[in-house]
Design a protein around this nucleic acid. Structure first.
Lengths: 337, 337
DNA sequence: CGGGATCGTCGAAGCGATTCAACACGCTAG
DNA sequence: CTAGCGTGTTGAATCGCTTCGACGATCCCG
């Protein structure tokens, strides 16, 4: 491989000049720049990433911790990841992927200066990674909300507001008995923050809107979904509105309702909290609160990049939920006639 | 951050000794090793990845190109990725994720010595990345089969054998009119190798077993799947066995069959080509040919690691397909009575 | 008891970039 | 006419590690 010295030699300049042409940190005259660029082209020169990292203390790589835990919805994760990877490229950064949720990987990439910054997904209320990453020299952004952010920046959909919004929507369309079909029990057991925040919003708005809300955990299998539906209808037969916050279970919930002869949209209003494409890929276009996974990934990168040099204060960004009415929810019983 | 010199100083040895303790490339006496290790521990020393890469020409990172193209099944991709990431850790390597299928990323990580090796997924028959990666100084393994591998190593499920196996199974259980519900049209248009190989196997065995086989492309949406089923049953009403090679469409195909009152397993035998967990997550446990995505990812890493120093010759590894009978396929009409 | 092998450690030379201080040059202003 | 300035370029130091050759000490065997 050609080195910067080779380029310098064939362009008839010094290595530092080549470096400045590349980085633009000092003015270089037009002719010189042109000669250098020609030399680079000719030799097919690519700066050595390691050498660069050593000299400049910048790797142009960010770490993305995306633990693949049981119960997480893989396609949604991948939407995040896509957002992160593509946005990172806008900042000339590549992405190092860590899928294990152990803490050693964090230590390695952080301590070894393998990355300039970190984005961590699937944050739990009391996440063991948080103190470690707070102590790291690299800036970090958490996707989700830990109990104690320790001065770290966070970003996520405002699930609490989403919960309120969903209930408000159902209440406004005349429903008084609503239910949540939510995350798998494993997710709840881990105290993954989004699940709890949604419920909090749900409950507070239920009280405010004088609506009862029943909660069912639900794993993503067909049988799990059927069971959740059956239990719900057995214990709360007056339910006329369901909020589904479980991408994997959603199609099965709809199937089960269909099997039981319950027409979604007329007999039963259903609001999904999920990415738009999931909402549209069901048998009926779903009224949904969009989970803008790719956006969130993008924002996470924006935030972490801002903090690369300037010591921006930490900040928490909760994206406002947007509810889009589609065919799965229509005015409920109280609004009838 | 502490440097190797700091460690050397506090341990009372030279930096090279510390390095040898870490790498084990020269014998170090017990007491010395112990002193060094204590110093490392005490200072929380982590070798600087960039410096290491510069000096040793090893980054301990491999690149994973996983283009997220339309029509690919994301959960399956993630199974590959998981296999790659976890196996890479066994070799002390981390994974740099490239999701864009452009060629510039390849160039960057390759030319800039950011990685020691490459794993490339979703290979097309005439993939533009292949010549580039063949010219790179890093070893590479392709997941899939290009038309001309140019001396590169490849790994994949033996889809041609899978096609034969599926037909043989159906033929053996008495079916004479079978059909494939296959990949989305985009995938076929790209000449993604697995789709074509499966069809080749299907056709050759159909001829050998004196069975007719009809082929339907099928996108992964509910409507696409329904349409594929409807078209199939309209144009080939005698069909009694279906092979589904499309993870996304599979549940919808089954739903549609159910809607039309066709009982899977008795009226219609269905064989799926998909990961085992997908086969088991359907309304009926599916007879399936396992797509061992995670295994393939692991094997890809094994192969590429073998080629890191030794100049092992290139090799193509096609994993033998395994068919597991479950409830979705039972003896067909000719075997009845 | 001497000579060669073996073992453990060290010093120094890179690896390939970045960046700072310094310098040469041509201008303008005084 | 010169001091002073800005512009464009350079040389050298530096980043933190690996690795090669060398060297003293210890060991074994004849």
């Amino acid at each position: 491989m050609a080195t910067i010295d080779d380029v310098a030699k064939t362009a008839g300049v010094s290595a530092s000049t080549v470096s400045y042409v590349l980085s633009g940190k000092r003015p270089i005259s037009g002719p010189t720049r042109a000669r250098v660029e020609r030399a680079i082209e000719k030799l097919g020169y690519r700066p050595h990433a390691g050498a660069r990292a050593l000299a400049s203390a910048r790797t142009n790589v960010i770490a993305l911790m995306a633990p693949l835990r049981v119960g997480v919805n893989v396609p949604v994760i991948m939407q995040f990841v896509t957002g992160v990877v593509t946005r990172a490229r806008d900042f000339e950064h590549d992405v190092l992927l860590l899928t294990q949720d152990d803490v050693s990987g964090l230590d390695r990439v952080t301590g070894g200066s393998m990355v300039d910054a970190l984005v961590m997904m699937d944050i739990e209320a009391d996440d063991p990674r948080v103190p470690l990453v707070a102590a790291a020299k690299q800036p970090a952004v958490l996707v989700g909300l830990p109990e104690d952010p320790e001065g770290l920046s966070c970003v996520d959909l405002d699930f609490e507001a989403a919960g309120r919004l969903a209930v408000r929507h159902l209440a406004a369309t005349g429903h008084t008995d609503v239910a949540l079909i939510g995350s798998p029990p494993e997710v709840l057991r881990r105290h993954t923050s989004y699940a709890e925040r949604l419920m909090r919003g749900l409950r507070s708005q239920a009280q405010a809107s004088d609506v009862t809300v029943r909660v069912e955990a639900c794993d993503s299998s067909p049988s799990g979904a059927s069971q959740a539906v059956d239990t719900l209808l057995a214990t709360a037969p007056d339910t006329t509105g369901i909020i589904v916050h479980n991408e994997g279970a959603l199609p099965h919930v709809l199937s089960r309702l269909a099997e039981r002869g319950i027409a979604v949209g007329t007999d039963m209003a259903v609001v999904a909290v999920c990415p738009k494409d999931v909402a549209l890929a069901q048998r009926i276009p779903m009224t949904s609160i969009d989970l803008p996974a790719e956006d969130i990934g993008r924002v996470a990168v924006d935030m972490v990049m801002t903090r690369l040099d300037g010591d921006q204060p930490s900040e928490t960004r909760l994206l406002a939920p947007v509810l889009t009415e589609r065919e799965s929810s229509t005015p409920g019983p109280a609004a009838d006639g």
